[in-house]
Amino acid sequence: MYFDSFADFIAMGGHGTFVWMAYACFLMVIIWNLISPVMRRRQVLESARRYWRRADAENQPPSVD
């Protein structure tokens, strides 16, 4: 550990605001890049599920591709 105490670690020698702000932005970008694909995946699964519910009801075979 480079710092003597936890308070020092938070303060970052007076630059704490900037360092923690930058790392917060980093975290936000990571979280956005995790949440938006998950949402998209749910949406896609839902639309595929709906398609197959309807196709099964109409006895429609899967497309050949």
């Binding site: 995946r41 896609v44 699964l45 595929a48 497309s63």
Partner: peptide, 12 residues
């Protein structure tokens, strides 16, 4: 993978 699933959702 999500986009592939969306494109191919009609396949077996």
């Amino acid at each position: 993978r999500s986009e592939v699933l969306e494109r191919e959702k009609r396949t077996a």
